[in-house]
Design a protein around this nucleic acid. Sequence first.
RNA 1: GCGGGCGUGCUGGAACUUGGUAGACAGGCCAGGUUUAGGUCCUGGUGCUCGCAAGAGCGUGGGGGUUCGAGUCCCUCCGCCCGCACCA
Length: 839
Amino acid sequence: MADSETRPGTDERYDPQAIERKWQLVWEAENTWVVANPGSPEFDESKPKSYVLEMLPYPSGEPHVGHLKTYSVGDAIAHFRRRRGYRVVHPMGYDAFGLPAENAAIQTGEHPREATEKSIASFREQFMRWGISIDWTRELGTHEPSYYRWTQWIFLKLYERGLAHRHEAPVHWCPKDQTVLANEQVIDGHCERCGTLVELRQLEQWFFRITEYAQQLLDDFELLESWPENVVTMQRNWIGRSEGAEVVFRCGELDLDFPVFTTRPDTLFGATFFVLAPEHPLTEQLAEGTEHEQAVREYVNESARASAEERADEAHQKTGVPLGREVVNPVNGERIPMFVADYVLMEYGTGAIMAVPAHDERDYEFAKAFGLPIRRVIEGTDPEQARDDDGLPFSGDGQMVNSDRFDGEHNREAYGEIVSWLASDGRGEAAVNYRLRDWLVSRQRYWGAPIPIVYCDECGMIPVPEDQLPILLPDVEDYAPKGRSPLAAAEDWVRTECPSCGGDARRETDTMDTFVDSSWYFLRYLDPKNDEQCWSKEVANYWMPVDQYIGGVEHAILHLMYARFFIKALHDIGVLEVREPFANLFTQGMITRDGAKMSKSRGNTVSPAENVERFGADSLRTYICFMGPPIKGGDWSDEGVEGIFRFLARLWRLGREVAGRAEPGGSTDGADGHARELLAKAHWAIDKATRDIEPRFQFNTAIAAVMELVNEIYRLKDGLYGEPTGAATVRFATATAASLLFPFAPHLGAEVYEWLEDARVWEQPWPEADPELLERDTYMLVVQVNGKLRDRIEVAADTEEGELVELAKGSQNVQRHLDGKAIVKEIVVPGRLVNLVVR
RNA sequence: GCGGGCGUGCUGGAACUUGGUAGACAGGCCAGGUUUAGGUCCUGGUGCUCGCAAGAGCGUGGGGGUUCGAGUCCCUCCGCCCGCACCA
């Protein structure tokens, strides 16, 4: 369509396709959203920086409505900040490695790279079609060798610092995807990706020592400016810090020490038995030679077969077997029997517990099931609890009993004394325990970054020297997982030379978890073409941290905690100043349709591409921001999009009419009557929209304010064209509407603004509300009698309190309700209401 | 079970800062107008009940409380959603 079609007065209808294409070409031709780094000649020091970032998409097929929402929200913020005087970097990339592309490859034979790059092309095209203001010079895909070279480099740095290590451990194995998974990727015992029940397997794997940073991950919440409370809570719970003591129970017979972690050292005197997890490495040795040997072996094997879910499911049905051994309770020298039971988890603490049935529900159940003694050592101060012998298990606080020299003390006070008493002769010590496990990062899959390690018979495990990076992912014929990485089949690739001795060596064939790729992409955006280093320190230190991060809450733990860990490690490695990657986090809610999550199998998906075709990107983006507060989810409605389309068309027509009737540049000074009223409405809308966009992220009400302004212009405009300041005011109000709508509907905003002001709206500062115009000279005084609304009276803004009361009493409707009654109280809230209390 | 959040017209939602006009703005529906026609555009109406109207009564999940005044604060019950779930 010819350019002239979008000029005022030459066509009949709002044609979003033409307008959007026009502006997209301008932005592309002029590199409007490209931003220079410090050190480059174009760098403008005068502005403060702002890094606005949305979580990068995983490219699979075409973008869906969730993507549209994320980038619409992020783009609104990016535009808003630019016009508020910030130098904004707003990049885009693709989280391109991962299982779905690989699984598709197994089915179709198409190389995952091809499928992924096809999808990337489709994402890129859609993002451009949506008019998202991205600096495309910074685009990257995590599957590109120029990117994963640095993923491998970071791996080596972590390895150097002892933060990447390989060891054997019970790990989660997904039998469908044929790979191990990180703890964080197991949801209720199921694979996060495919939903299959996971198994526990004893395997040697690569881990990142995120546990080293457990305390920092907790402490540094302090450094964040604004994160949703629920995300912080979820991470806190996931890290799961507990304070307590490690206490050693000794099995003299076999000369073995069994340390346990407990948060209740004050209940040590109540320990009547001792339990090991079935996976505990010493169970076999303990049972050996006892009458229980066979039973223990069977129980351990049984537990190994059972999934984590099955074990959790039999929640209240405690099972276990005796070991036929005893350990000594270090506080009283008592010998207590040992058991193996699956309610004790190997992954937490030491894999062994002291059982205090009187004060722990789980131990209580086990004791009841196995007829074991239950000894109360704390009496509740609540008289009812104290009296009631059967108030067990009792988890509250109170006086210690049956506890030797501590009898009579309050348990909270004895707590510290017991710990230091044990510590004094090496029987235990104060300890902190975390639920957080190390991050398992190796995967037995093809489509990921190879781990840059080589195994040599002579030298052992050798990291690949930096100058040999990247270790390129070789092409293979068969992607199907067989319990080992498909890379193992690429014999030529696997066989290599030892970097240390030059002899024969073999490459590590596992690839890295894709969450490794996405833990640092926001740093590479800052310096994406750098071949010398991962990023220039100067550049990264300038832009970091991300000032506003936007994405789905589903990443509350996984991605957001891994990235936090990475940034702390990179700080310690010395390549980055900041300690936290994301200063502010916004999590948007999910869009549903007919109340259900959109999915292909349900057939309730909404295609952004189709809708953009029909209504234009502006309508779609504005609708998504208008359907409710973006933090909440919302149900998709086709009528809703049409409604927004009608509104945009209404603004378009208004702009055209105003452009044709009022000359640019008229002054609104001295506007009075309706002109003043309209001017005030425009400034009200500026004020409202500004406060709603940031920090509230209430885009729906910001857009509603613009709608109100447009409605007001329609209501008043025809009477204003004849007045001295009228036409200029209508023009100003209309241009303001376009300007305020620009972050949500950038194409139409730019178009209408250009007609009216002959300028580029994105180059104009965000409008400021004039405080004088926000003040009204009159307001509606609310008059209540006994708190019930009886009248509204228009009064001058500066009316005195006494006069307000007189005016209120003078109202006819109020009079009727006062009739024959005495006024006992007059409440006056100036600027708002008068309430007359009568009896 | 534990922790957190929410509950407002037919629907999405508004009422923020500070307890002070409940239902902004939209969608839907109803009526009227413009149009050859329209899935266009414009105007009006739309919480419930009574009333021609003016107006009155009721109304923010149920019950109770604080207050001149409660969607908002407190207590309690019900319902829905999310997170965690044998973490010693």
